[in-house]
Every structure is written in C-alpha cells, then in structure tokens.
Write a protein that binds this DNA or RNA. Sequence first.
DNA 1: TTAATCACTTAGTACTACTCAA
DNA 2: TTGAGTAGTACTAAGTGATTAA
Length: 730
Amino acid sequence: METTNGHDKKDKKEKKEKKEKKEKKDDKKAEEADEKEKKEKKEKTETAETGDAAKKEKKDKGEEKKEKKDKKEKKDKKEKKDKANKEPKEKKDKKDKKDKKERREKRKLRKEQKLKQLADQRKKAHKIGLKGSKMLASKKRKAPAQSQTELKVLLKTEDDYEPVNRWWEREDGAESGKRGAKKWDTFEHHGLLFAPDYEPHRVPLIYDGERVELPPEAEEIAYYWTSVKGTPYETKDIFMKNFWKTFKEVLPKGSKIKDFKKCDFSLMADYREAERQKRLNRTKEEKEAEKAKNAKETEWFSYAIVNGVREKLGNYKLEPPQLFRGRGEHPKQGLLKKRTFPESVTLNIGETACVPKVVGMPGHAWRDVVHENTVQWIANFEDGLLTESKYVSFAATSGLKGQPDMLKYDRAKRLVRIIGSIRTSYEKMWTSRNVADRQKATATYFIDKLALRVGGEKDTEEEADTVGCCSLRVEHLKLTPPQTIHLDFLGKDSIRYTNSVEVAKQVFDNVQGFIKGKKQEEQVFDKISPADLNEYFKNFMEDLSAKVFRTYNASYTLQDELNKFDVSKRSQLSQEQLLQFYNDANRQVAILCNHQKAESKGHAQAMEKMKLQAKEIEQTYKRLKTHLHRLQEGKASKEAEGQKLPKDAEGTKKKMMEVKLRLHKHRTNMETREANKTVSLGTSKVNYMDPRITVAFCKKVDLAIERVFPKTVRTKFPWAMHFKSTYVFE
DNA sequence: TTAATCACTTAGTACTACTCAA
DNA sequence: TTGAGTAGTACTAAGTGATTAA
C-alpha cells in the first residue's frame, strides 16, 4: 500500500503553492498579452481602415475608454489580491478557484467582445473599402489593389480559421488508431439525410405498340430501368431477368403487360434524357445557386463533433432506391434495392449528446440508438436487398480514418525488415512432408511475389464467383514445364487477372502435386484457409496479415522505380517529363496490383485520330526536309509560297526542329494513352503506396506535389507532407 | 472448430467540372 | 468559342480480417 510521510506532505504543499503562484503569474501574463494583442490589432486595423480625422477621433475615444477600463480592471484585481492575502488558507484556496474561474470567464467574455468588435470593424471596413474603391475609381485609380490587399490581410481574425486538427501528432495516436480501441469520450452528430421520395412523372410505357400509364409504384421501377440505358447492364441476361421479376411483382392484377420483349421504355428514357439535358443546360449562375443551396442543406449533416473536434463525415446521405448493380455475374443484379427508412437505422452517438431528429420522415423513428465508443461508425443500416448491414462513417480526410491508415503504412514498412526471414521460413516449409504446410508455403509465395489477395470463401448463390489466392481452382492455372505457371481468373470486382510467371522450381512442383487428380472446379489449396495463412504470419509480426503484403509490395515497387531516376539529368527535364516518370512508376505498381478500369468509350476512335495526326506531322517534316534540300540547291521559291514554307534554310531548319519536337511529344502522348487505357493509377495512389515516398520524390526532384496528389489525396495524407526528400521506405 | 457476423478497407463506375487544342 | 478529353469526386460494391456465436 502507498504511504505518505511528513516530509512528503511538506514537499507537496510547497509544490502546490509554487504551482498556484505560477498559475497566477501565467494568468496575469496571458491577460497582459491579450490586452497588448488587442491594442496592437486594433491599432493596425484602424490605421488600415482609412486614417481620416473622424476615425482617429473615434480611435482616441476608444483608447480612452479602454484605458479607463484597464485601470478599473487592474484596481479590481489588486483589491481582490489584497483581500485574498488576508483570508485563511482554506478559504483562500476556495476563493482562488472561484477567482480563477471568474478570470477565465472574463477572458472568454473579453475574447468574444474582441471578436465581435473585429467582426464589426470588418463590416465597416468592407463598406469603407467599397466606398474607397468607388472614390478611387473616379480619381485616376491610385493603387487601389494595394490598399485593398492590406485591408484583407489585416482584417482576418481567428474567426476566419478553424484550428488544424493535428491528429497525427497526438501521443495516443498509435493506440487510438487500433481496432477496438476507444475512439471518443464525447460524440455528437446530426443523423442522416434520407433519399428524396420518388416523384411520378406519368410518362407512359408502350406495350405492344399501345401507351400504358403505370401506377406510381410500377412507374418507379420502370423508370429505374431506364437509368441503365447505354450501360452493359441493359443487355445482361441476369440483370434483365431480375428486373422483369421485380417489375412484374408491382404491376396491378390483370395487367396486360406480360412479355418483357413487348415493353418499350423509350418514352420514359426520352423523358429521363430531357431532364438530364435540362440540368446540363442550366446557366452557370443557376448551377452555382443550386450548388450553394444543396451545400447549405447538407452542411447540417456532414460533420460530427468528436471530443470537441469537428470531423467530416463520409456517406451521410442514405443510398437512394435503385436496381442493384452488382459486378460481373452477380446473381442479384437487376433486383430492386429498396428505400431505407429510419426503422432500419441504428444510430451511434455519445451518451450525453442530443439524439438527432429524423428529418423529412414524419412519423418514423430510429430503430435503435447505441453509444459504442470503440467503433468508428455513426450509424448502420440494413441494405435494401443484400443480407448485410452497411455503415455510415467518417470521410477519408478525418482523423478517425487517417490514424489507422497511417499505421497501415508503418506496418508495411516493418514488413520490409522481416521479409527476409519470412522468405527463409516458407522456402524451408515448401518441402515439408505435411501437405497443409506445403500449401501454406506455396500460397505465401504467391502472395509475396505476385501481390495476390488472400481469397476468402464465397457463397456463389448470393455473390459473383470470384477468387483470390486460397480459393484458386484447378481451372484457373495452366502449367508449362519447366517452371512457368499461367494464371487466369476473376478477382475482386470480377476483374480478370492474367499473368504468366516463371516461378521457383519447388513452387512449380508443389502446384503440380496439389492439382494432380483433381477436377477443374476443385480448389488448388484445399487444405488451407485465409485464417491459417494469417495465423502463420503472426509468427513473424503481431499485426501481419495477408493484405499487408500488398501494401508492402506496392510501396516497395514504387520506391524501386523512383530510385531509377537520374538526378544529374534533373535540370534537363520539365515538370511534364517528371510527372511522366512518376506516372510510369505508378503504372508499374498498378499493374502489379492488377488495378484496372474499363476502356473509355472513345478510346479506339481517339487513337485512330491520333495516328492520323502523327502521319500528318511526319509528312510535314518530310516536306520541310525536301524543301531544305531544294533551298540549298537554290530551287524552292515557288513551292515555298504555295505551301507557306519558310523562305530560307535557317528558317526551315528551325521549323524542322519544332515539328520534330511536336512529333516526339505526340508519340509519347499516344504511348502513354495506350498504356493507360485499362490501367487505373488512382487506386494504388490512394490505398497502397506509402505517400511519404511520393512526397520525398517530389521534394528531391522539385516536382510540384499538386501534379501527383490531387487535393483529396493531399488532404487524406496531411501527416505525410512534411517528410524530407531523404525519406526511405525501409 | 466452424460458421456467422461485425467492422473496416479497397475497388471500379458514373457523373460533373475543368482544361486545352482546334 | 466549342467540344473532346481528363481530372476530381461521390457513390456504393466487394473485398479482408477479427470477433462472436453455435
């Protein structure tokens, strides 16, 4: 048990007294500093305003008042201090506390007054500024820009800024970023924004050549169908079948609509298109006004306050009803994803916070309200179709998302240090007598070398049939001796992965052994699951799992590619060329992780056009070359006039250089476009590559960070921006 | 021990606003 | 000035991995 002796008590008393003295001193200092700042700011502001006599008088009067006020305050303070000194210790302590509180409140009040005063001044100054500018305009416009700029600078107060939430500098960051850790003590938000009601348009459907007006319920489903017009869903069998099933269910009894093929939705589709055009044709002002109106309406919902700090939310708008657009061969695509009502929503909020009202849905109520401070969601709701619940959480720019994200890159960085021992381990294990161990080692090899996802089990009746490493089937592999494996399967989002790799001889032999005697639809790694692999990884690092390998691989590859940059040639390169170098590195990562995108509609056509343009440029160059020869032989004058060619050899040479450069630029452009036609660079940038590597590279070669990180990415990684050019991912 | 659930990250698509060359 | 192409962003589907329940 802890004990306290007399000496300790004395020490404590002394310390306490010292502390109190210090606090008093600090309070006084703070007050003085406040006053000084106030005075200075006021002086500056007022000087900047106009400087005319009337204003000065006001200022003088104001100062007089302020001085009187100051004196009074000082007098009050002195009196209190004297009085306090005379009082007994206990009373004095109480009194001190009370005084401190009072002082705090006074300071707060003064601050508010100051802010109000400054805001008033700003309003005044704005008026004066306007007046001033008009006056100046009539008087030869004497440097109006300068005086106005000054006003702007001086009139900014703390009112104009929100303190930066430097969550990455918090000492408890590493702990609070972990899953299951306490996220908040106080937590409030305004609930969710429900999707607007469907508004019937009464545009008929044409059935078998006849116009049929549908009841609102059926019209709504039919109208959703027109939203997939022009997309691949329109012609997909599962989608059509499921839509028809949904549509039939809402048709009135005895409806003559019996056959999907006889349904013509074109009038509705035209109506949708007309509405879209109407929106597109709005004037700039109309668009801006609507944007501002929407922003005002949604602002209320878009932030939460976590431990007193404002944090941006992500998907606070609930998903509107629509036909489900599952990827690949998802068995449920085309079915209706129903509207979400408050009765399907559970809110998570601080115990002492006000439970937000259900806005726009009179008579409805939240399903439940909970106070879970170990999770990062503000609400969860049942999906209107799938048997899962979805979460409403914070934006990627928030601290709550940023903290674990930052830890993710540190985890991948720690993997760099132990990857050697992991490789030694699995290379030893791949010859084990135990099949499960051999499979574990071989699967780890694929995850390590090819950055494959781990590949969990899936319910193919509810989801599309896609696979990852552990769920690979015999049909997905082809083996070519001595040691090449061809992979061809549909991965996440039904994106096709094709790759032919020369693997280690032992890996080749193992895979050959695993698939021997198995049917095409049987699993290659039938003795292991993702959980087994993750358990194995825990032997090397407490928080290592299969997905860390992808982060590690992406970051390592990026750094490796960027290291190829020859700094000695830096001065010869433009920002465009530097950007291209970076994007090439980024592309290597995207290819490794198999990040794809659909080829844009006009790609082939655009490429054809570019090829023609390239030919034209080539011809121009040839023509110039011939022209130069003729000029040198003294024959070219007539042709030069007809074709607008330069009149002398020097001019022609100069023109030739220009055309050559243009051709080079054009060809590079074509190559890049072709190389990027199905490669998506953004996914690895946002999710996989350690941002510090990019920041360091940009600083090293003097490439503007905005060229590689758009605003959203920059605000997602504020913690990475201050790293130096010497940062290394190792 | 296995399956189900929960909580989170990763992913491509669709749309809009912006940019730049013709 | 226009229109094609691109960048940026909102949206939401589809993964992973830890925890809980059976």
